[in-house]
Simulated assay, not measured.
Amino acid sequence: MLSASEIARLLAGKIKGDASTIIDTIRPLNSPEKGGLAIVFSRTDFSFICDSKADILVGPEAILKSPAQTKILIDHLDANKLNQLLRYYKVQKYRLFDQGNTSQSPDVYIGKHCQIGENCYFMPGVKIMNGVSIGNNVAIHANTVIKEGTIIGDNVTIDSNNSIGNYSFEYMAGEDGNYQRVESIGRVIIHNNVEIGSNNTIDRGTLGDTIIGEGSKVDNQIQIGHDCKIGRHCLIISQCGFAGHTILGDHVIVHGQVGTSGHITIGSHSVIKAKSGVSHSCPEGSDLFGYPAKDAKHYYKNLAVLNKLTKEFDQNRGFPISKPK
């Protein structure tokens, strides 16, 4: 629990409104949930200010337009001060001050304050950290690490050598030009009937959650970045990489070695063919291929024209075709 006055002190901010307001959660600025603390990170967040449902909002003077009952004005975000706040919150939220192994198996580590369902099976080398919640009929195979606060539903299978709940890859530039990591306090949420292959890394959200929807299947050697949202019944094939804040709709198929830039949305029932690079949002039912990815039919037409021009160029020994006058 944090009061507005404590937050203002940590961030060296000025309070406008009720200094006694108490929060017990920190959420993204555009979260649909009511209450908590939200922080303006960049100018792109300004469009969410007026619709924010937070009780306490931190940011520049533009936040005075917000309906939040308490505003904390700061000239700029200082990474050190911000991380001091976020680390304190994270330690309290996941009770990191109280750790220890509660497992009855010598080959498995289970931290404190976890909830484990029935008929779960953990292979040697599994490590489950503080505050993890696991449903029924969950199998986690050798040497997988499930980090603090992760939520796993029922009937989930996680293969070997996964790291789930890693730090988000979110940095702020300091005045000296060095990058400083922003402490990540969000979670990874894995819904029911998900299957995850081997050697994958799934980052926790910075302030929000990284989510893998019900029934989705994740192959091997895949990176899912912070705050990504994978829809229901998606199929993700090996060696894909999703940058932070990528959103996949439901029933999306992503073939091998696809990469996405961050902050984009791929509509439901879309297909992304192998080795494509997706740099912009696409509507439902998209069929994407290439780099930068575009509609596959258009890509093939462009390729056919290019092949024809190349063939004609070669036939004329490098000289363009010209008709006799």
Results as ranks from 00 to 15, higher is better:
13 G>H: 07
15 I>L: 09
15 I>N: 09
16 K>T: 06
19 A>R: 15
22 I>K: 13
24 D>Q: 06
25 T>C: 11
26 I>H: 06
26 I>F: 05
26 I>Y: 07
27 R>E: 08
27 R>K: 15
28 P>A: 07
28 P>W: 00
29 L>K: 00
30 N>D: 11
30 N>K: 09
30 N>G: 03
30 N>Q: 10
31 S>C: 10
31 S>D: 14
33 E>N: 08
34 K>V: 02
34 K>L: 01
37 L>E: 01
38 A>V: 01
39 I>Q: 08
39 I>G: 05
39 I>M: 04
40 V>W: 02
44 T>P: 04
45 D>R: 02
46 F>G: 00
48 F>R: 05
49 I>R: 02
51 D>H: 03
51 D>Q: 09
53 K>M: 02
53 K>D: 04
54 A>H: 02
56 I>E: 01
57 L>K: 08
57 L>M: 04
58 V>M: 05
58 V>N: 05
59 G>Q: 03
59 G>A: 01
61 E>P: 04
62 A>M: 13
63 I>Y: 01
64 L>P: 02
64 L>E: 10
64 L>Y: 06
64 L>G: 05
67 P>M: 08
68 A>P: 12
68 A>I: 14
69 Q>F: 12
69 Q>V: 14
69 Q>Y: 11
70 T>V: 09
71 K>A: 01
71 K>I: 01
72 I>H: 08
74 I>T: 06
74 I>E: 03
75 D>C: 03
77 L>N: 00
78 D>A: 09
78 D>N: 14
79 A>D: 06
79 A>F: 13
81 K>F: 12
85 L>C: 06
85 L>N: 02
86 L>R: 00
88 Y>P: 11
89 Y>M: 06
89 Y>W: 14
93 K>N: 11
94 Y>C: 11
94 Y>D: 12
94 Y>R: 04
94 Y>F: 15
94 Y>S: 11
96 L>Y: 07
96 L>W: 03
96 L>D: 11
97 F>G: 13
98 D>C: 04
99 Q>D: 03
100 G>V: 10
100 G>A: 05
101 N>T: 13
101 N>F: 14
102 T>G: 07
103 S>L: 07
103 S>Q: 04
104 Q>D: 09
105 S>K: 12
106 P>L: 12
106 P>F: 11
107 D>I: 00
107 D>S: 15
108 V>R: 07
109 Y>H: 12
110 I>L: 10
111 G>I: 13
112 K>C: 01
113 H>E: 05
113 H>R: 07
113 H>V: 11
113 H>G: 10
114 C>Y: 07
115 Q>E: 14
116 I>H: 02
116 I>P: 14
116 I>V: 15
116 I>Q: 12
117 G>Q: 10
117 G>E: 05
119 N>F: 15
120 C>S: 06
122 F>M: 09
